[in-house]
Design a protein around this nucleic acid. Structure first.
Length: 640
RNA sequence: GCUGGUGUAGCUCAAUCGGUAGAGCAACUGACUUGUAAUCAGUAGGUUGAGGGUUCAAGUCCUUUCACCAGCUCCA
């Protein structure tokens, strides 16, 4: 019979051959490295049979699929080790995730301890050295249920498969361990060599908080030792960039027990950074035709009932009362903005109306989710609401996407786009939801931007485009979001007078660019590892003298820089220059002006950059123009 | 909220079996006046997250609670 290779070449091979035979026919070397195969687009084991006219691709450790297969097999290896060591451990599921895998176990009343990870790793090494072949078996649903009669979670999974209409399931045997699994797998446990179990955590069965909490073990696995080491090293490096650690070191913010969990306090350095960011935002919004507005922190509960927040968002809100009238602390800024629109009769000529507010909101987040500045209970959004006509909707969405792109470009962020559709809890008509969702898709298509769809993850009042930024450890954080809303204008009975003299309903866009300013600062900190670009750096320049003899000149320079609006501080302590440089370096200050007698005599400045590079004996006017350029161009470079 | 772990000086961390709470850095004082990542000496700093209990004796054991860390669920 004949099979086809990825190159399109035809290969003649004996009837009944397996993918391994294909590899072996091509070359001995390939056969040695062959881990799995892709037959007609489906991933299969290396010993899977091939049929006439099949398209066959041999997978080796060079292919991306191979890592996933390795990790999946490592998860099985770990489950086997766990069941050898813990007789009452029930297996559930063990999928591959980014950079690794996990496996969930029901341990009954037992718990894993951190020391258990080492024991399990040792047992895994033992099983790997036993060189157990991993063999696939296909059995009927009934037989599978008999075989797993003692594993209730597997029974549940098998029943789920049966419900989908499948008559058989595949099982993988390796020695004394059998798992229900679609595969494919590596052919032998001895191929699993470079792995590490990373952490233990609880996880609900099937991700549902009403279900039992299982014990999860996370791990990673690689083909080469160097790859494993590099990955573990990367995790260490990422820890150093953690904004909570850097936030403390660089004195950006603090979260105190006495104040309350999830309520950050900005220290002067963090305050300087944040103020700069907010000033930048105000300017950019004014450039783009937004008006700045302000609303109160608490609004009457009745208004939250009208908006639907009371019915749909109450668990996340804080309430209080004033003279027996119920009020709610705002978790969102939209209500005030609705009232801004209603404050006048609007003509179609007035639209679009764009209201911008750096609005601080409070949300009751569950205690377990709080995380530095990334997840807090009080945060400030760079929030805006745009009210426009249906005809203007598409252009408005596109303008927001351009805005987001401009801002992310300044920081050099990578991001991913998701469209979140109607959730289970929603307000308004299906027709409006369809229109709103359509509008978002159209704008993304018009910009030719790639996106993923996140079913059922929209806000209760409308679908949204989410922009997610990547943090130091590769986690994604939602920052910008654009939400189309046909519902709130209806609930608040917003109208404008059209060309025809009749009342019409505007459409509302909710949108944020940075999202939460607080979260954005957290992401920024990790992104730059605390080495902020000059324009946003809390301290831009530190003036350092060599001896007291240069004090007057140093003070003169400092005053001039301050007068120009730069963030300058000084270190005139009676310490050696090396010591003062070291401190400035650890504080990640971009520019140090090192002023000795030479500089004072000749009225020059010498600059040491955060990179260690020096620019000696410059005219002050030249130096200040460098700073001005950095501020104006928002450059990521330390010099020009 | 749930599961597991961790809370010791401003920061980073010690303290063996339950037996006198300690170091480095920072702070403060003094000397040194210094040229590109740590000058030297001295002083002070604590109800061991908080409450309750066991014990002759608790940082250490038990218990309640708060916070933090990892993850789950949820989310900007």
């Amino acid at each position: 019979m004949n099979i086809f290779l990825p190159s399109g070449d035809k290969l003649e091979i004996e009837n009944g051959a397996t993918a391994f035979d294909v590899a072996n026919t091509i070359s001995k070397g390939l056969a040695k490295n062959a881990l799995a195969a892709e037959i007609n687009g489906n991933l299969v084991d290396i010993y899977a049979p091939v049929g006439d006219n099949d398209k066959v691709r041999i997978i080796t450790d060079k292919d991306t699929e191979a890592l996933e297969i390795l990790r999946h097999s490592t998860a099985h290896l770990m489950a086997q080790a766990v069941q050898r060591l813990f007789k009452n451990a029930k297996v559930t599921i063990g999928p591959v995730i980014k950079d690794g895998f996990y496996y969930d176990f029901d341990m009954g009343d037992d718990k894993f301890s951190p020391e258990d990870l080492e024991k399990i790793e040792k047992e895994m090494a033992k099983i790997a050295s036993e060189a157990l072949p991993c063999k696939r078996r296909v059995v009927s649903i009934d037989d599978a249920k008999k075989e797993f009669s003692h594993e209730k979670y597997k029974i549940e999974l098998i029943e789920g498969i049966a419900e989908k209409g499948d008559k058989t399931v595949s099982l993988y045997d390796q020695g004394d361990f059998t798992d229900l699994c679609r595969g494919p797998h590596l052919d032998n446990t001895k191929r699993i060599k470079h792995y590490k179990l990373l952490s233990i955590a609880g996880a609900y069965w099937r991700g549902d908080e009403n279900n039992k909490m299982l014990q999860r073990i996370y791990g990673t696995s690689w083909f080469k030792k160097e790859e494993l080491d590099a990955y573990l090293n990367m995790l260490e490096e990422a820890k150093k960039r953690d904004h909570r650690k850097l936030g403390k070191q660089l004195k950006l913010f603090t979260i105190e027990d006495e104040v309350g969990a999830g309520f950050p306090i900005y220290l002067p350095r963090g305050g300087a950074l944040r103020a700069t960011l907010e000033e930048f935002e105000r300017k950019e919004h004014l450039k783009r035709g937004y008006d700045i507005v302000y609303g109160p922190q608490i609004l009457k509960q009745d208004l939250w009932k009208l908006s639907g927040h009371y019915d749909n968002y109450r668990e996340n809100m804080y309430f209080t009362s004033i003279d027996d009238v119920a009020f709610g602390v705002k978790p969102m800024n939209c209500l005030s903005h609705m009232m801004v629109f209603k404050s006048e009769i609007r003509s179609y000529r007035d639209l679009p109306q764009r209201y911008f507010e750096l609005g601080t909101v409070h949300r009751h987040e569950k205690s377990g989710v709080l995380h530095g500045l990334m997840r807090v209970r009080a945060f400030t959004q760079d929030d805006a609401h745009i009210l426009c006509t249906p005809e203007q909707l598409n252009d408005e969405i596109i303008a927001i996407i351009d805005f987001v792109n401009y801002v992310m470009g300044i920081f050099g962020f990578e991001y991913e786009i998701e469209v979140s559709t109607r959730p289970e809890k929603y307000i308004g008509s299906l027709e409006n939801w369809d229109k709103a969702t359509e509008a978002l898709f159209n704008a993304l298509k018009a910009k030719g931007l790639p996106y993923e769809i996140n079913e059922g993850d929209g806000a209760f009042y409308g679908p949204k485009i989410d922009i997610k930024l990547k943090d130091a450890i590769g986690r994604f954080w939602q920052c910008a979001t654009i939400q189309a809303d046909f519902n709130l204008p209806e609930r608040f009975d917003l109208n404008y007078i059209g060309e025809d003299g009749q009342k019409h309903r505007p459409i509302m866009l909710h949108r944020v660019i940075l999202g939460s300013v607080d979260r954005f600062i957290g992401v920024l900190t990790e992104h730059f590892a605390g080495n902020f670009p000059i324009w946003i750096s809390p301290v831009q320049v530190r003036v350092i003298n060599i001896t007291d003899a240069q004090l007057d000149y140093c003070k003169e320079l400092t005053a001039k820089l301050k007068a120009e609006g730069f963030r300058v501080d000084t270190d005139f302590r009676n310490e050696k220059i090396g010591f003062k440089i070291r401190e400035a370096q650890m504080e990640k200050i971009p520019h140090m002006l090192i002023i000795g007698q030479n500089e004072a005599d000749n009225k020059k400045v010498s600059v040491r950059l955060r990179s260690g590079e020096t620019k000696n004996e410059l005219d002050f006017s030249d130096y200040i123009s460098v700073l001005r350029e950095s501020d104006q161009n928002k450059t990521l470079n330390l010099w020009r």
